[in-house]
Amino acid sequence: MSLSASLQAWLAAGKGATAAHLWLFQPGATGSLVAVLLFGIVVYVMIQRARAGAPMRQIHPLPGIDAIDEAIGRATEMGRPVFYSSGDTGVTDPMTIAHYPILAHVARRCARYDTRLLQPNEDPVVYTVNDSIVREAYLEAGRPEAFNPDDVWFMNNSSGYITGVWDLMQKQRPAASILYGDFYYDAIMLVEMGGLVGAVQIGATAQIPELPFFVAGCDYALIAEEMYAASAYIGHEPVLTGTVVAEDLYKFAMFVLIVVGAVWLSIVGSTPFSSFVHF
């Protein structure tokens, strides 16, 4: 369709739109846009406050993150490698996005302590990002020559990853295993294999069906939102912390909304919120 024809189609479609949408917003998705914009505004305000040097609340301790240094230290003492997996999915997954700062932290520590980091990947594009992150971490630590390009690699795009990791763990016997990202049914397999070789395990995911295996099998687990807050916690950077404060403010609003919604529903029998969801 040509541009002018498309614009005419848009104008024609706009005639049927409600005034509230002003022809601009997609009906049915406007409520979502408002929710995102509100969240964006809260995040922006908190970022500006952090940049202006306003005092920022601290994130309460996340033992799973604190344990990373301890686990790497243990691997160093034992002369065994650290295993790190960023999950099964691609770059579009927010859990994958959330792992980058954690990998950077782990890689910097490994570089500093001269501990081998094994980082097999399941997605080719994620592999390239992870490879860059680890490479840079070694560079930052002033030990670029210690980086072994064969230790960050693409292993397989499907369940072959599990068999490959089993084999790898059995032969390399890592002393620490960090699983940070979106995992599916392989979660239990990776956790158990890590347990069998005696690795200290730290697991983080927001994939609900796999959470029980991380909580039950790992020494430390970060549950869902904790894995997203970790990047701010790890760097103690005010701007990143500001975004977590924004998250909390928005969550508080949601908390109040759930209470008000319950009272409203009990009195009136329905809430106007469902109309907003589909607005």
Partner: peptide, 16 residues
């Protein structure tokens, strides 16, 4: 966000 809002909407419970 649409799924998120749906989850919030589904959290309203009749208390009496």
């Amino acid at each position: 966000p649409a799924v998120f809002l749906g989850q919030v909407n589904g959290s309203f419970t009749r208390l009496w």
